[in-house]
Design a protein around this nucleic acid. Structure first.
Lengths: 197, 197
DNA sequence: TCGCTAAGTAGAGTCGTTGTACTTTTCTAC
DNA sequence: GTAGAAAAGTACAACGACTCTACTTAGCGA
C-alpha cells in the first residue's frame, strides 16, 4: 500500500509496527485474544511494551491494523459514483463489491472467527463502522448541497453502515445485503408468513 | 418500582446497591467520569471495592443503573399493542411516548451531558441499545409467526433502536423521531434542497 | 562532525477487575 | 431461642492494560 517511505527512519518505524501487528495476529490466532497479553506480543516482536502503545492505541487496535482505508473507499463510492446514479444504489453497489470479497481469502475465515468469538473485538468492530457515520453522512449531505448534520443524511449513513453488520452472519450475504437495501429504498414490509405446516 | 422486598436481607442489599449508585453518580457529576476511581466510589458509599463489583458488572454500569426495565417496556409495546395496529406504528408511538420524557427532568440534562461527553459511556450506551436487538426482533418475529432470526425482523429491530440515538442531539426530538420512522415506513427520500440564497 | 529529533527502553505506578479466604449478618428449621 | 446453612461483605493479593518519566540509541541535516 503505502510506498516504503524515503527515509530509513520511517522504514524502520513501519517495520517495527508491522512486526508488532504480525506477532499479535499470530498469537491471537494460536491462543485466543484474552489468552495473549501485551507483554507476550512485545516479547514476540522483540520490543518493549511501551513501544507497542507508541504504535497502537490499544489492544483491540492491534487486530484491526489496516482498516483505515475502508473509510476513504466508502466516501469515494459516494463522491465518484457514475453520473446519474442514485446514492443508495451507489452504496449498495459498493457494499456488494467490497464486502463479501473479504470472506474470499482463506485466512480471513479464521480472522472473522477470531473477531466474532471475542466480545471485546465485536464491540470494537461495530464501533469502527459507526464511527464512519460522520464522514459518510457529510459526503452524502454534500452531494445534495444540504447541511452536514441534515437528519436524512445522517440517518442514511447510519443505516447503511449497519447493513454489513446485519448481513455478517447470514448464509447468503449478497441476498441479505440486497434485501436490506430494499428496505431502505422502499420501506419496511412485513415478512412473508411461511406456508402453514 | 420494585416493592421493598419482604426480607430484611434483600432490603439491605438493595440499600447498599442504591448507596453505591448514588455515590457514583454524584461523584461523576462533580468531577468527571475519568476523574473518579472505583475506590473513590467505594469510600463514598462506605463499602469495599469488591462489593461494588458484586453489585455492578463494571464501571460503566454504575451510570446506567435502572435501565433494565427499558427492554421489557419495549417488548411490551410490541406484544400488547392495540389490536390491528401496525408494528412500526406501535414502536413509533412507544418511542414518542417514553423517550422525549427523559429530557423533562431537570437533573437529566447534566446526566445526558455526562454521558455524551464521556466516550466510554457513549459507547456503552449505544451497545446497550443494540443489545436489545435480539429480544426485540424475537418479539417482532413472533408476531408474524416467522423464525426468530428472520432478516426483516432483525433489521427492523436494529433500525428502530438506532432511532433514539440519531434523534438524541436534535433540537426537536419529536419531529426527528417522526421523520426517522417515516424513512423506515416509506423508504428513504433525498432531503429537500434548501431554497437558493 | 555536531547536535537535534524521533524511536525505543526500563521501570515504576495507576486503575479496573478478579480470586481467595475470612468475618458478619440474616434466614430457616428445629 | 439456638444451631447452622446461605448470603453479603471485607481485606488483601494479584493480573493485565495502560501511562509517565527519565534515559539511551540511532538516523538526519547542517
Amino acid at each position: 500500500m503505502t510506498v516504503p517511505s524515503a527515509s530509513r527512519r520511517d522504514r524502520k518505524k513501519a517495520a517495527t509496527r508491522q512486526a508488532i501487528a504480525d506477532a499479535a495476529l499470530q498469537l491471537f490466532l494460536e491462543r485466543s485474544y484474552d489468552q495473549v497479553s501485551i507483554r507476550d506480543i512485545a516479547d514476540a516482536a522483540d520490543v518493549s511494551t511501551a513501544t507497542v502503545f507508541k504504535h497502537f492505541s490499544g489492544k483491540e487496535a492491534l487486530v484491526f491494523d489496516q482498516d483505515e482505508d475502508r473509510e476513504s473507499q466508502l466516501i469515494a463510492a459516494v463522491r465518484q459514483r457514475p453520473s446519474g446514479q442514485n446514492i443508495l444504489d451507489a452504496l449498495r453497489q459498493h457494499v456488494l463489491d467490497t464486502w463479501p470479497a473479504i470472506g474470499a481469502h482463506p485466512q480471513a475465515a479464521e480472522f472473522t472467527n477470531l473477531v466474532n468469538s471475542t466480545p471485546a473485538l465485536r464491540a470494537y468492530a461495530e464501533r469502527m463502522w459507526t464511527r464512519y457515520t460522520d464522514s459518510l453522512s457529510a459526503a452524502i449531505a454534500d452531494e445534495f448541497g444540504v447541511d452536514h448534520d441534515n437528519l436524512a443524511c445522517v440517518a442514511l449513513a447510519r443505516f447503511v453502515l449497519e447493513i454489513p453488520v446485519l448481513a455478517r452472519d447470514r448464509k447468503d450475504r449478497r441476498a441479505a445485503v440486497e434485501a436490506l437495501f430494499d428496505i431502505l429504498t422502499h420501506g419496511w414490509e412485513p415478512p412473508n408468513k411461511p406456508p402453514a405446516l
